[in-house]
Design a protein around this nucleic acid. Structure first.
Length: 416
RNA sequence: GUGGCCUUGGUGUAGCGGCAACACAGCAGAUUGUGGUUCUGUUAUCAGGGGUUCGAUUCCCCUAGGCCACCCCA
C-alpha cells in the first residue's frame, strides 16, 4: 500500500458514521436542554495559549503537542483540548463577564501526540461544555448531572462517577507541601516515574498504578483533608446536591487532573468495560483560568467526553441501527435513450425530495435490479424500449413484487 | 517514550521450509428485458525491506502499522 493513514488517526467509514451522528445529536440535545449554545473555534491556536493554560510541566505541553511554525515563523499548535480556545474566544468576543452566566458547548477533533492504543488516538474527538460566571456549587452539580443524563440517554452501562476536590490557589500549595513532606522519606523506594513526579507534580503520584508505590499512596494525605474553608464548603455543597438528586457517585481521594488549570471540584466518569483508557469523560472547575488568560476574574466549570471511547462502548453493546432510511426510488433503464430519460426523471424525483439513484455502469437489467435491492430501494421504475414507445414505465414495489404501468409524467405523483 | 504479543484476498479465518485453503462479500453467467433462494466461474507478488536456504508466507534482523500494559488522558 503506497499511501496509508497517518499513525494514530482513523477513517470513520460510512457504516460507522450514523453511530457518530446519533451520538453527536444526543450531545446537542442534552446540552441545549440545559441552555448551552454551540461554539466552534479553529483547529489550531497560537502555541502560547496552551502552554499558558495547561501548564508547562504537564505531559500534554511537554511532549504531546502538534506544534508547527507557519510561513512567518509563528508558533502554532493543533488544539490538544478545547477549554483554552473557548476561553480565548470568549475574551476576544466579549462573551463573558463576572456578572453574567455564559454556557457553551463544542464538538470536534483534538490532537495529542501519544502512543496509539485502543481508545487513545492522536486525532480524537471530544464533545464538551464550559459554564462561565458562577461559583455556585449548584452549577458544579448541574454539569455532573447533565453528563450522567447524557450517558444514560446514549445508553452507556457500567459507569462510575468519581469526584474529588483539588483545592484552590490558596490551599493547593499547602497540600503539595504536605504531600512532599509525606513522600520525602520513601520516595527512593518508589518507581522512577514517581520520583520524577515528586519533583514537578507531586499530586500525580496519587494515581500511580505501580504495585510497589501503592502502600505509600494509601496512607498519603488526601486533598479533601487539607482544603481551605471555602473549598471545603464548596465541595460539601456539591456532594449534598448530588446526594439530593440521588446521583450515583463516589468521592475518590486520589483523583487528580493532568491539566494545571483545574481548581476545586474535579470529576471523571469511567467505564468498567474499557481497558486502561477507561475515562469516558472528565472535567471540573477552573476558577482562575480566565484571569490567567487576560480576562477578569470569572469562575468556570466544564467537562469533555471522549467520543471514541463512547463509540467503543456502544459497539460492544447489542446494537442494530441498520439505517431504515434509504433510497426510495431506483430507475432501471435499457438502452441509451431510456437512460437519458431515466436521468431526467431521476432529477425530477430528487427535486421533489425523493431520494433516488440509477446505474451508471451500463449493467444488465438483472444487475440493476440486484443493485436496487442491495441499496434498499423501495421502488424500481423500469424503462426499456417498449416503455419508451408507450410513454409509461413499469413501477415495481420491491417488497411485494407488484408492478404496474405508470406514465413518465405521473411518476412523481405516484410516489407521494 | 518503555516492555510484550501480532500483521495471509474487500472482510473474517486456515496453513506450512517446497504448486497458499475455506467462508462471506463483490463481479459475471445459468438460453435472449426483472432483485432478495440455489448452482457455476472469477478475485492474494501471504504489511514493506534485508538475510539464512537449492527453495521462505513459514526461520532471523530492520522498518511500518495494530493490539495489551506502563505512561498519559477524554
Amino acid at each position: 500500500m503506497k499511501y496509508s493513514i497517518p499513525r494514530g488517526t482513523k477513517d470513520i467509514l460510512p457504516d460507522e458514521a450514523p453511530l457518530w451522528q446519533s451520538i453527536e445529536e444526543a450531545c446537542r440535545k442534552v446540552f441545549e436542554l440545559y441552555n448551552y449554545k454551540e461554539i466552534r473555534t479553529p483547529i489550531f491556536e497560537k502555541t502560547e495559549l496552551f502552554t499558558r493554560s495547561i501548564g508547562t510541566t504537564t505531559d500534554i505541553v511537554k511532549k504531546e503537542m502538534y506544534e508547527f511554525k507557519d510561513r512567518k515563523g509563528r508558533s502554532l499548535t493543533l488544539r490538544p483540548e478545547e477549554t483554552a480556545p473557548v476561553v480565548r474566544a470568549c475574551l476576544e468576543n466579549n462573551l463573558i463577564s463576572p456578572d453574567q452566566m455564559t454556557k457553551l458547548y463544542y464538538i470536534g477533533p483534538m490532537f495529542r501526540y501519544e502512543r496509539p492504543q485502543a481508545g487513545r488516538q492522536r486525532q480524537f474527538h471530544q464533545a464538551g461544555v464550559e459554564a462561565f460566571g458562577a461559583s455556585d456549587p449548584l452549577i458544579d452539580a448541574e454539569i455532573i448531572l447533565m453528563n450522567v443524563q447524557l450517558f444514560n440517554k446514549i445508553g452507556l452501562k457500567d459507569l462510575e462517577v468519581n469526584i474529588n476536590s483539588v483545592g484552590c490557589k490558596k490551599c493547593r500549595p499547602e497540600f503539595r507541601k504536605e504531600l512532599k513532606a509525606y513522600f520525602k522519606n520513601n520516595i527512593k523506594n518508589m518507581c522512577k516515574d514517581c520520583q520524577e513526579r515528586f519533583e514537578f507534580n507531586p499530586l500525580r503520584i496519587l494515581d500511580c498504578k505501580e504495585a510497589k508505590c501503592q502502600k505509600y499512596i494509601e496512607e498519603a494525605p488526601a486533598s479533601v483533608d487539607t482544603l481551605c474553608r471555602d473549598c471545603k464548603l464548596n465541595f460539601e455543597e456539591v456532594i449534598k446536591m448530588l446526594d439530593y438528586q440521588k446521583a450515583n457517585f463516589k468521592v475518590s481521594k486520589r483523583l487528580v487532573r493532568g491539566l494545571d488549570y483545574y481548581t476545586r471540584v474535579t470529576f471523571e466518569i469511567v467505564s468498567k468495560q474499557l481497558g486502561a483508557q477507561n475515562a469516558v469523560s472528565g472535567g471540573g472547575r477552573y476558577d482562575t483560568l480566565v484571569q490567567e488568560l487576560g480576562g477578569k476574574s470569572i469562575p468556570a466549570v466544564g467537562f469533555a467526553i471522549g467520543m471514541e471511547r463512547v463509540i467503543e462502548l456502544l459497539k460492544s453493546e447489542i446494537r442494530n441501527p441498520k439505517s431504515e432510511q434509504g433510497i426510495l426510488l431506483f430507475i432501471a433503464t435499457l438502452g441509451e435513450e431510456a437512460k437519458k430519460l431515466g436521468f431526467d426523471l431521476l432529477s425530477k424525483a430528487r427535486e421533489k425530495g425523493i431520494a433516488a439513484d440509477m446505474d451508471y455502469l451500463g449493467k444488465s437489467l438483472k444487475a440493476q435490479m440486484k443493485m436496487a435491492d442491495r441499496i434498499g430501494a423501495k421502488k424500481v421504475y423500469i424503462i426499456g424500449e417498449d416503455e419508451l414507445k408507450k410513454g409509461c414505465g413499469i413501477l415495481k414495489d420491491m417488497k411485494t413484487g407488484e408492478q404496474k404501468e405508470v406514465s413518465f409524467d405521473s411518476l412523481g405523483e405516484e410516489l407521494k
